[in-house]
Structure formats: C-alpha cells, structure tokens
Amino acid sequence: MVGPLLELRGLAKRYGAHTAVHPTSLAIEKNDFFAILGPSGCGKTTLLRMIGGFVPPSEGRILVAGADVTRLPPERRPTGMVFQNYGLFPHMTARQNIAYGLRLRRTARRDLDRAVDEMLALVHLEAFADRLVPQLSGGQRQRVALARALILKPQVLLLDEPLAALDLKLRKAMHRELRQIHQAIGGTFILVSHDQTEVMTLANRVAVMNGGKVVQQGAPRDIYTRPADAFVSAFVGEANILPANRLRGVIELAPGTVLADPGPDQPVNVVIRPEQIQFGPGAETAIRLQARMVDAIFLGPFSHLRCELATGASLLVQIDSNDLNRMPALGSNVTLGWQAGNHLVLDQA
C-alpha cells in the first residue's frame, strides 16, 4: 500500500448554522495508535463517528487504503468501533457477544469457535467466557467490547472514550492492556479522549481539537514541549501562561526581568512548564523572578507550589515531595527561575 491507511480530506459536519467539525484533513498511517484529544463539545466524537459511518459528513471524503468509503454504511466499512457504553447484549455471555459479528457473516462453526477462543485469550477472558454481561466487571465488559470489534479484523479500530466509565486504577491497567493488544496485532487504532494522560500513555501521534478544528497534530512529546498556542499549552499538561508585551525585541515579565525575543511589537504569552522552574536563591538560572509562596499541595511523589508575582500573576512550580519539608512558610518571599531555552513565546491570538 502506498500512502496513508486512512485519509480525511476536508471532512466537515454542520447542523444547521452550527459547525460541529470544520473542514479537517488528516493522514493516519498503518499501525498508528492515533489519538484525537480535546475538551467536551470540541467535535472529536463527531469526527470519529463520521470515520465509522455513523454520522454522514456535510462535505469532504474518507479514504481507507485508497478506497473512498465516505458514503458506505458502517457494516460495509473496513472499520470497527468500541463505544463508550460498550453496547453489549446483556442476555448473552461474553463468548456469545464476541461471536456476534461472525455469526452475522455466517462464519463456519469451526472457524468461529477458533476465532472466539483466540480473542478470549488476547483479552485474558478465558475464565469468564460463559458469564453473562451483568456478571462481568467494568473492565471485563470493556475487554469483551474490544474483542467483539477486533474479531472482525477491521483495518481501523475506532475507540470512543472506551475507558471513561472505569475508575482510575482500572483505567491504568487497561492502558497497559490496550498497548499490549495494539503491539500484538499490529493494527491501526484511533482513540478519542478528553484525558490527556490517557492519550500520552497510549498514542504515538495526537491531534488536538478545539472548537471543531484540529489546532495541532504531531508526536505527544512535540505537542507537550512545543504547543502551537495558549489553548494547547494549557490543555495538554500543566502550564504557566504569562501575558506580556513584546516591544523592540524585549519582553518584560516583571520589573528587572526581561527576555530577549525577536519579533514584531505585540501582545504575547510566555509559557513555562511547572517542572522547568527552579526554586530557591541558589538556583543558577538565566531568568529570575521574585514571588510570594501562597500554597503548597502534596501530590504523592511530587508537590505543587503556587507562587504569586508582584504583578499579581500566579506561577505553578513542581518540586520533589522530599523537598517539601525544606520549603519556607506560606507567605514567604521566594526566588524562582528557569533557563532561557525552557520557555516558549506565543503570539496572542
């Protein structure tokens, strides 16, 4: 196959005067674990459902392996979908749910049984094969839904926030399961999620959506370290965003603290991640700010300090929790700093 496995060409969806998804073009390669990340209402689920054939696009085309599937119904597309609520038949066992798609295809009994056994082994549910859906835990139901989609061997597996209903510990366990399944079968997965940790854990490529538009796409590390705008920097991980003005190639963050930054005179945002900020007068940093410590939050292996600048702006600082006992009292004046290459300057929209 030449070219990407899945292509979206100017795909858009409108409901009357409301545009849910603006014209969107994406290229997703074979074996990608691709994630669409964004807040509720940004259009990510609508985009996924258009790919699966459950929502007709207002314009644009969908190609899978070079074939145009834009007008095909879901059952005729080389895609499978795992829904947020799983969509399992409660009166059927795990085995019967997994076999359902192959039964509709009138697959021979011997081949069907072998395929179901393979799927049960893949999702580690051999011991629960004959349990009814209400007798299964949330994580087990999620695995059944995954196996039911995978047994049809779709070229593209679509995952619509499949872990949203699980508790934190179980979600983390299922992250490992999904990674292992993706590696084992070598398939192409497309995940929709509002959970940035989930996306960073699972995906090798990410598209960030906001207001019905893809505002940035790339590798998770690139999106985290080089966000395209203030929205991405704030949505993907924690970020300090300091509004300022660039005048004659200089940005003044506070009296006596300036950054050299070539560019036109205009309002900008200076973005710095909490883990990049060093704390204390002994820190050897190029950029230094005086602040007052107003809060300290223990978060297990690390802690967050909330500090306030003289300008009234707030800075979040991440430190090792082992250092928390050595911190000055709340209300104390502190010195913060970071190296010149660790911040990012973004033009304000």
Results as ranks from 00 to 15, higher is better:
V55H: 12
K169L: 10
P328V: 08
G186H: 13
Q140N: 04
A164M: 03
E275H: 02
V345E: 01
G101Y: 13
L259S: 01
G187F: 09
L132W: 10
L178W: 00
A228G: 15
L150A: 02
L72A: 11
L122W: 00
V64K: 03
E75W: 06
K213Q: 13
A99F: 11
H343D: 03
R143M: 00
V268R: 06
D167G: 02
H182A: 03
Q217R: 08
P262E: 15
G282S: 06
T24H: 01
L202S: 07
L316W: 08
V64S: 10
A207E: 10
G16R: 01
R77T: 03
T45E: 06
H194R: 01
C42N: 04
M327V: 07
Q140S: 09
D229R: 06
T197F: 09
Q339N: 15
C42H: 03
G10N: 13
I277V: 04
D160Q: 00
N85R: 10
E75H: 11
L37M: 09
N210C: 14
A129T: 12
L11T: 04
Q266T: 11
L242D: 05
A283G: 07
A286G: 08
M327F: 06
G263P: 04
Y86L: 05
M92W: 11
S25E: 07
E29D: 15
T201H: 05
W338N: 04
V144K: 10
E126V: 09
F235S: 00
E198R: 12
A283W: 01
A121E: 15
Q266M: 08
L136K: 11
D111M: 02
L63Y: 05
D222W: 13
N204T: 04
N245A: 12
Q290C: 11
T311Y: 01
